[in-house]
Amino acid sequence: NKSRCTICSKLAEIRHEVSVNNVTHKLCSNHCFNKYRLAN
């Protein structure tokens, strides 16, 4: 079950899903999750 990561755009296994204003951001790693948190 692979999806495209919101941060790095890599097609990968999604580890984190963050839902903001009915938009789901898919994040493939802790690294991308941290980058997402810093950016938002």
Rank of each mutant, 00 (worst) to 15 (best):
S9T: 09
S19N: 02
T24Q: 08
N21C: 06
A12W: 01
H25W: 11
E17A: 07
K2P: 02
A12Y: 00
V23F: 02
F33T: 05
C32D: 15
N30D: 13
T24S: 09
K35S: 09
L11Q: 11
R15L: 12
V20G: 10
E17S: 07
C28G: 01
S29G: 09
Y36R: 04
N1W: 03
A12D: 03
N40K: 13
V18L: 10
V20Q: 10
R4M: 09
A39S: 14
L38K: 14
C8H: 00
L11F: 13
H31V: 15
Y36W: 15
S29L: 01
K10W: 00
N21P: 04
S29Q: 02
K26E: 09
C32F: 15
H31D: 15
S29R: 01
L27K: 02
S19K: 09
K2E: 03
N30K: 08
N1M: 09
R37M: 06
H16L: 03
L11E: 13
H31M: 15
K10T: 08
H16D: 15
C5A: 00
E17F: 07
K10A: 10
I7M: 13
K10M: 06
V23W: 05
I14F: 02
T6Y: 04
E17Q: 08
H25D: 13
N22F: 01
A12S: 10
L11Y: 04
C8W: 00
S29M: 02
C28H: 02
K2T: 10
V18C: 02
I14P: 15
V18M: 06
H31N: 14
R15A: 12
L38D: 14
S9Y: 09
V18E: 08
K35I: 04
N40A: 13
H16V: 02
K35M: 08
H31S: 11
N1E: 11
S3G: 13
E13W: 04
K26P: 09
N22D: 11
S19G: 07
F33V: 10
I7Q: 11
S9M: 12
S19P: 06
I14K: 02
A12V: 07
S29E: 04
N30G: 13
N40C: 08
V23C: 03
L27H: 00
N30Y: 02
N40V: 05
K26D: 02
L27A: 05
T24E: 12
K10R: 10
H31G: 14
C32A: 02
R4S: 04
V20E: 12
C32H: 01
I14S: 08
R37E: 15
C28F: 00
K2V: 02
I7C: 08
S29T: 03
L38E: 15
I7P: 01
C5W: 00
S9L: 10
N34M: 10
L11W: 14
V23L: 12
R4Q: 14
C5G: 00
R15H: 03
N40P: 12
Y36K: 06
T24K: 15
S29K: 01
K26L: 10
K26S: 11
K26V: 13
R37V: 12
A39P: 06
L27G: 02
V18H: 10
N40D: 11
A12C: 10
K10G: 06
N40S: 12
F33Q: 04
K10L: 05
R37Q: 15
N21M: 07
F33S: 06
Y36Q: 07
E17K: 06
K2M: 08
L38F: 02
C8I: 00
C32M: 01
E13S: 04
I7G: 11
E13A: 07
V23S: 11
Y36P: 05
I14T: 05
L27R: 01
C28S: 01
Y36L: 14
N22L: 05
C8Q: 01
L38G: 15
A39R: 15
S9F: 13
V23A: 13
F33N: 02
A39M: 13
N22G: 15
R4A: 11
R15P: 10
K35D: 04
N22C: 06
T24D: 07
S9K: 14
N30H: 08
L38P: 06
K26Y: 12
C28D: 00
L27Q: 02
Y36S: 13
C28P: 01
K35N: 10
S9Q: 14
C8A: 00
R15F: 05
H16E: 06
V20S: 09
R15W: 10
C32L: 01
N21W: 03
H16K: 08
A39E: 12
N22I: 03
N30R: 09
K2R: 08
C28V: 00
K26I: 06
C5Q: 01
V18R: 05
Y36M: 14
C32Q: 01
V20W: 03
T6H: 05
K10Q: 14
N1A: 07
S19A: 11
R4I: 06
N30F: 04
R4D: 04
C5F: 00
I14Y: 03
R37A: 13
S3W: 08
F33A: 12
Y36I: 09
I14Q: 04
N30C: 01
S3P: 03
L38S: 13
N34I: 02
K10V: 08
E17V: 11
V20P: 02
